[in-house]
Design a binder for these strands. Structure first.
Length: 354
DNA sequence: AACTCGGGGAG
DNA sequence: CTCCCAGAGTT
């Protein structure tokens, strides 16, 4: 316990009780609901995750309902939220808890940590909020608040930084109300001690915040810059048969969008034209099997779909065929498949009048 | 220790 | 444009 801990905690929690948002997962200690919200909010803003939380709670009132759902259905509900391994791990953990643990959710940090998709942050969040255990969370908000208040310049995206801030948070946590403390420091970071231009003049800690006293608020927290993004070139083959069928494929193996669906994809090392497309072996595999009548380019100017670590330079080729072959689906059923936002945007634009 | 994995909001 | 969000898993 640090000498400053009671001061920090009391002031923080007082602020929280006056300023907290009313959120659906704040009116319960149900570990299923807390777990669900914490998985969804990993690297995701509250306002982005909120509608998904409401959808999931309605579709799956109990963890057994989630466990019994098909994986494709879970992915479809998750569509648009990103980081789809969260959805797959969520489903796997629901089955694990429902079937092998007979529905009894793990009730302590150590056992929670064993669950797929549950790391240090999420295990601490569930342990403190649902089971009142003094396990301190360290998320992006906590890094920011603590690095500023204590004037710590250790980079947060290093092993040393993670250990240092975890230890500090653990020494600060209010052991009588750990869940409230954890939510308070995160809410304070999200709503007041914000990344850009925080209102330090009106901050409850501006007489004790080291960064504010030393005018280093804008420099904290420190972070090691990540490398530059990779640029990729995607060519989607949007097959259209005369009886209104097309082809979707499920992504498997490693990489982005694992287990989501998309049109047949040919990735190239640069932008290509129609004659280059026709010469590609991947394309010829299709032209051998299908009677292709016409090919047109939907978007001359590539759609640049930006992910945090890669830019997808994407063009959609409309490939009209005379007849339906095997492995096609009715165009009207495309909307039932979980697809990346990149595909969803194209589908809603192209098939709008279809 | 470094890399990978989405999408969107804010300035 | 840049930064970052109630991080975790893999290499």
């Amino acid at each position: 316990m640090l000498k400053i801990a009671p001061y920090f905690s009391n002031k923080l929690i007082a602020w929280y009780l006056q300023n907290k948002r009313e959120l659906p997962w704040r009116n319960t200690a149900n570990p299923y609901h807390i777990w669900l919200s914490e998985i969804m909010l990993q690297q995701t803003r509250v306002l982005q995750g909120l509608p998904y939380y409401l959808k999931f709670v309605e579709a799956y009132p109990k963890i057994e309902d989630l466990a019994n759902a098909p994986e494709d259905e879970v992915l479809k509900l998750w569509q648009g939220l990103g980081y789809y391994s969260r959805a797959r791990n969520l489903h796997a953990t629901a089955k694990m808890v429902s079937e092998e643990m007979k529905g009894a959710f793990p009730n302590n940090y150590k056992d929670l940590l064993k669950l797929k998709g549950v790391g240090d942050y999420t295990a601490s969040a569930i342990a403190s909020i649902s089971f009142n255990q003094p396990e301190a969370v360290v998320d992006g908000n906590v890094y920011r608040v603590l690095s500023r208040f204590f004037g710590i310049s250790t980079p947060i995206n290093t092993t040393a930084g993670q250990k240092e801030f975890k230890k500090l948070a653990q020494r600060l946590i209010d052991k009588d109300q750990p869940g409230t403390f954890n939510q308070a420091i995160m809410e304070f970071g999200a709503r007041f001690c914000v990344p850009q231009n925080p209102d330090c003049g009106n901050c409850i800690f501006n007489d004790s915040c080291v960064a504010f006293q030393q005018r280093k608020v804008s420099q904290l927290p420190m972070k090691i810059k990540s490398k530059t993004v990779k640029i990729r070139f995607f060519n989607y083959l949007v097959f259209l048969s005369e009886n209104e069928r097309t082809i979707l494929q499920q992504r498997n193996g490693k990489g982005i969008w694992h287990k989501l669906y998309e049109f047949p994809l040919i990735e190239t090392s640069e932008e290509i034209n129609l004659s280059m497309l026709k010469k590609l072996p991947q394309f010829q595999d299709f032209s051998k099997k299908l009677n292709i009548e016409n090919i047109s380019l939907f978007n001359e100017k590539p759609v640049v779909h930006k992910l945090s670590h890669q830019h997808l330079n994407t063009r959609f080729w409309i490939v009209e065929t005379s007849e339906a072959s095997e492995s096609t689906i009715p165009i009207s059923e495309v909307k039932n498949y979980a697809v990346p936002v990149l595909i969803e945007n194209f589908v809603s634009e192209f098939f709008e009048n279809y």
